[in-house]
Amino acid sequence: DIEITTNGEEDAKRVIKELQKRNLEYHIEVHGNQWVIKVR
């Protein structure tokens, strides 16, 4: 598993777009303004 910590929603959406392009499965956890994306 890979864990990507982003700085808020805009940053997270940019990362998610890339993950979707590669058809990767991911899970999002929001901790305040930090979005942690866990990639399987």
Rank of each mutant, 00 (worst) to 15 (best):
G32T: 03
V39M: 04
L24D: 02
E3D: 07
I4K: 01
E29S: 09
I2M: 12
E3W: 15
D11K: 06
W35E: 01
I16G: 03
N33W: 05
G8I: 08
N23L: 06
A12P: 01
G8L: 06
T6L: 14
K21I: 10
E10P: 05
L24Q: 05
R22P: 02
W35S: 02
L19Q: 00
H27R: 12
V15S: 01
T5V: 15
I2R: 08
V36G: 00
H27D: 12
G32L: 04
I28L: 09
I4T: 02
Q20E: 15
V30H: 09
V36A: 02
R40A: 11
R14K: 13
V39N: 00
R14C: 11
V30K: 10
K13L: 14
T6V: 15
K13P: 01
K17P: 01
R22S: 09
T5P: 05
E9Q: 07
K17H: 10
I28Q: 02
I2H: 08
K17I: 13
K38R: 13
Q20T: 10
T5C: 13
V39H: 02
I37G: 00
E25L: 13
N33T: 12
T5D: 03
E18S: 06
E3M: 14
E29I: 11
D11H: 12
T6Q: 02
L19V: 03
I28N: 00
T5S: 07
V30I: 14
T5R: 15
V36T: 07
E10W: 09
G32R: 03
N33K: 07
Q34R: 13
E18P: 00
W35H: 03
N7E: 12
G8D: 14
V15N: 01
Q34C: 14
L24S: 03
V36P: 00
R14G: 05
W35M: 04
T6F: 10
L24W: 09
I37D: 00
A12E: 01
V39Q: 01
E9M: 08
R40N: 10
D1M: 14
G8P: 01
E10S: 07
R22F: 13
E9S: 06
I2Y: 15
K38N: 04
V36Y: 04
H31C: 12
E29Y: 09
D1K: 08
N33D: 13
G32M: 04
K38D: 01
G32F: 04
D1P: 11
K21E: 13
E9D: 05
Y26R: 00
R40P: 09
E9V: 09
E18K: 05
V30S: 04
Q20H: 06
K21M: 12
D1E: 13
K38Q: 05
I2W: 15
H27W: 14
N33Q: 10
I28F: 04
Q34N: 10
D11E: 15
